[in-house]
């Protein structure tokens, strides 16, 4: 039997998401501009582009996937371990995961297949001048 995954319900199809503008949207209706505008008005948060460099099974945590990113203008290398069904938002494409089938099963959220070369939306703290 599969272990019960941690299912953040904000990825469930139909989940209501509040943008920084105050606007409410369903998670499946979000578009790139919603993230970009939200970051602009949020004050303190900044959208970064995180390029997927490599996708492989996690060495430390079986069942998880290690995603290797280069983040932002500095192209810092960051690796995170996530369940294969975890959705990421790809610029100009929308929700994408390593296992769109599992994402559909667990969340009902339609996803593209996340691939090396995809540019994901991530957030970071805005640099104070």
């Amino acid at each position: 039997p599969a272990p019960a995954p941690c299912n953040p319900s904000h990825f469930m199809k139909g989940a209501i998401i509040q943008l920084a503008t105050g606007e409410l949207k369903r998670v499946e209706d979000l578009q790139t501009q919603d993230f970009v505008r939200s970051a602009e008005v949020s004050g303190g948060l900044k959208i970064d582009s995180s390029l997927v460099m490599d996708i492989r099974g996690s060495q430390q945590r079986p069942g998880l996937v290690s995603l290797h990113f280069t983040v932002g203008e500095q192209q810092s290398k960051v690796t995170i371990d996530v369940p294969p069904e975890h959705p990421f938002f790809v610029f100009g494409q929308g929700w994408s995961s390593c296992s769109p089938e599992r994402t559909a099963q667990l969340y009902g959220l339609a996803c593209h297949h996340l691939q090396v070369g995809d540019m994901c939306v991530s957030i970071t703290l805005q640099q104070q001048p």
Partner: peptide, 19 residues
């Protein structure tokens, strides 16, 4: 109906990490 903030949907990736 629960409402979730937009920033809970995308990863917080700290670009200041060296490497």
């Amino acid at each position: 109906v629960p409402v979730f903030p937009w920033h809970s949907l995308v990863p917080f990736l700290e670009p200041s990490q060296s490497g």
